[in-house]
Amino acid sequence: MRRFVRDNGLSLGFGIAFLLALAGQAIAGHAEFNNQLATDGLAQIGFGAYLASSDFAVDVTENWQSEYLQFFLYVFATVWLLQRGSPESKEMHKAGPESDQDQRVGEHARSDSPRWASAGGVRQAVFSRSLGLVMASLFLLSWLAQSIAGVAAYNEQQLRQLQAPIGWGNYLASADFWSRSLQNWQSELLAVASMAVLSVYLRQRGSPESKPVGASHSSTGVEG
């Protein structure tokens, strides 16, 4: 068990932190939602009913889709885009998908390489881009979930105000949907850009997200 925890400490640590944060969001969101119901003169709902509500679902999924968008764009963009001096960037001469030899695919695969790395054709092409494809799929699925939960939450608010509900297609073109999306996108993109630039000049000893403390500011693609 101790070895398992050590070998999986990063995923376990962030997984537990995620669950705690989600629980905290649920508790705070439930209180806020009931306060809004009380203000509107409506009956409050229980915690379980709130967890099954569209309001909770849209608040969760709108954050998920922005996170997966961030990683999807980052995975694909860093194939071609470089940042001199940043450990978040490849070395300046390695822009692009790189050679089969550099990527250890096909005849250059090693004995411990994944099986699809040595395969050819479609299998190798898919596996070579599998991380970005999965991130893109998770982004699209969470964005779809946000839109479905969002239109339900929006229409509930419309009905409370004695206004007519709208269809899913109209909601996709609404200010509410795009405001929810863009306010998360801009923060995620700013965070990535900040990390790429600040890691050129700042260090965090022992972190793979940082260059070694003594590395020059111009060192690119070097991790501590």
Rank of each mutant, 00 (worst) to 15 (best):
V5A: 08
D7R: 03
L12R: 08
F14T: 09
I16S: 06
A21N: 11
L22I: 12
L22T: 12
I27F: 15
A28S: 06
A31F: 08
A31M: 08
E32H: 07
F33M: 08
N34I: 00
N34C: 01
Q36G: 03
Q36L: 10
A38F: 02
T39M: 02
D40F: 03
D40Q: 10
A43S: 11
F47L: 12
F47A: 05
L51D: 04
S53A: 05
S54V: 03
A57D: 02
V60M: 13
Q65S: 05
S66N: 06
Y68M: 13
Q70E: 11
Q70F: 13
F71G: 02
F72K: 01
V75T: 11
F76E: 07
A77K: 12
A77M: 14
A77Y: 11
T78A: 08
W80T: 06
L82C: 04
Q83K: 12
Q83M: 12
G85E: 03
E88W: 12
E88T: 05
S89A: 11
M92V: 04
H93D: 15
H93C: 07
E98I: 00
S99T: 15
D102H: 05
E107C: 02
E107S: 04
D112T: 13
D112F: 07
S113V: 01
S113G: 01
S113C: 01
P114K: 04
P114M: 03
W116S: 07
W116M: 10
G120Q: 05
G120H: 02
V122L: 15
R123C: 04
Q124H: 12
Q124M: 08
V126W: 03
S130M: 10
G132F: 02
L133N: 02
V134W: 07
V134I: 15
W143E: 09
L144K: 04
Q146R: 00
Q146M: 11
Q146S: 08
S147T: 14
V151M: 01
V151G: 00
A152L: 09
A152T: 10
Q157W: 11
R160V: 06
R160L: 07
Q163A: 14
A164K: 09
G167D: 12
G169R: 07
N170V: 12
N170K: 11
Y171K: 06
A173C: 01
S174Y: 07
D176P: 03
F177K: 00
S181Y: 13
L182F: 13
Q183S: 09
Q183F: 01
W185N: 08
Q186Y: 15
E188A: 07
L190R: 10
A191K: 13
A193P: 03
S194I: 15
S199N: 08
S199C: 10
V200I: 12
Y201E: 04
L202P: 00
R203C: 10
R205K: 15
G206E: 05
G206A: 06
E209A: 08
K211E: 12
V213H: 00
G214T: 15
A215Y: 10
T220P: 05
G221F: 05
V222D: 03
E223W: 10
G224T: 09
